[in-house]
């Protein structure tokens, strides 16, 4: 493997052991669980494909547009005014600005995830849930509980201090008198019981359940998953639920300790082995070609198709809790 980058100056990493992460979010923990080598490339070396996937671009804009709507509604704006804010965002942020007042629209290779299907999905979702029984909680600071950044300490020690779990919750809502975390998902596949079954067990949902219980202070009943099936000519929405009993989140958390011990072992040995049973997941790992090449050629391939960025899960997005 190449020389481990010096991560000791980064806030999310150990200050003494290069490559040992200190603050973990669901993305980095998920990458570690999927494949230690993928985790190393993505999180420690910070490689990202130069061409961002259309699914990821769509998901980011979809979340952001709905978040803007929720903020405007919480400020007292009407449905149509708040919706206009989301539409304006979708139109303005899905273009690339070029020199001299020129611009070009985001060109997607996915027929069901592009500018037009984004706008349609946002407008149809917000219209469908205009009179939603799930109401956003208003926090003590008068801000809506939307895109909440969280962090909390766990038992596992790194550099003689507790490691952190961190992340962002889309929304906390009150629904039928109980509190739920609400998360948005988009898919091109059919939304049915099998679709919702994939969220238990699920790394992200278990972390969100735990985070909501710890940072919100009150028991959260579960997680609402508002799923959008995005097709070429239409969008369908279905609301599903996933629940975690305290014994389940306790078990998940105790298993996190084992995973972090693994991460510590990988960092200390400087070896992040490939899990070659994960290469085909989710349409194929972006590093498949890199791992399939001779070790001496991998750096060249990475430089050709990827760019580096610093992974920092501690950067807050919306409201800190």
């Amino acid at each position: 493997m190449s020389i481990v980058p010096d991560t000791t100056q980064l806030k999310a990493f150990s200050s003494t052991i290069p490559g040992l992460q200190f603050a973990w979010d669901s993305v980095s923990l998920g990458e570690l669980k999927t494949c230690p080598r993928k985790y190393y490339y993505t999180i420690i070396e910070g490689w990202q494909p130069i061409l961002r996937s259309d699914h990821l671009t769509f998901g980011i804009h979809y979340h952001r547009a709905l978040e803007l709507y929720d903020h405007r509604k919480a400020e007292g704006q009407s449905h149509n005014d708040a919706l206009d804010c989301a539409v304006k965002y979708c139109l303005e942020e899905t273009v690339v600005r070029l020199p001299g007042d020129r611009w070009r629209p985001w060109t997607s290779q996915e027929p069901n995830k592009n500018r037009e299907t984004l706008l349609r999905t946002v407008v149809w979702y917000l219209d469908q849930f205009e009179q939603d029984a799930a109401q956003t909680i208003i926090l003590q600071n008068s801000k809506p509980a939307v895109e909440l950044s969280f962090r909390f300490e766990i038992d596992y020690q790194i550099d003689s201090q507790p490691a952190l779990l961190c992340g962002h919750l889309d929304r906390i809502v009150e629904f039928t008198g109980k509190k739920f975390v609400l998360d948005h998902k988009t898919t091109k596949y059919n939304i049915d019981d099998r679709y919702f079954a994939q969220f238990n067990p699920d790394n992200q949902m278990s972390l969100y359940s735990l985070a909501a219980q710890i940072v919100y202070g009150e028991p959260v009943r579960g997680i609402i998953i508002d799923a959008a099936q995005v097709l070429v000519n239409s969008s369908r929405f279905l609301r599903g639920f996933t629940f975690r009993h305290k014994s389940e989140t306790d078990e998940w958390l105790s298993e996190v300790n084992y995973w972090l011990a693994q991460a510590q072992h990988f960092a200390q040995s400087g070896v992040w082995p490939k899990n070659d049973k994960s290469c085909g997941f989710y349409g194929g790992c972006p590093f498949r070609e890199v791992c399939a090449s001779a070790p001496s050629f991998r750096e060249t391939l990475l430089n050709a198709s990827f760019r580096r960025r610093v992974w920092d899960p501690l950067i807050p997005r919306g409201t800190d809790v």
Binding site: V87, K88, L91, V95, V123, W124
Partner: peptide, 17 residues
Amino acid sequence: DPLQLTRQDRDAIVAVL
């Protein structure tokens, strides 16, 4: 250019959708 669009333009899009 999306920066040149008015509320009326956006309302027209919403109406079509």
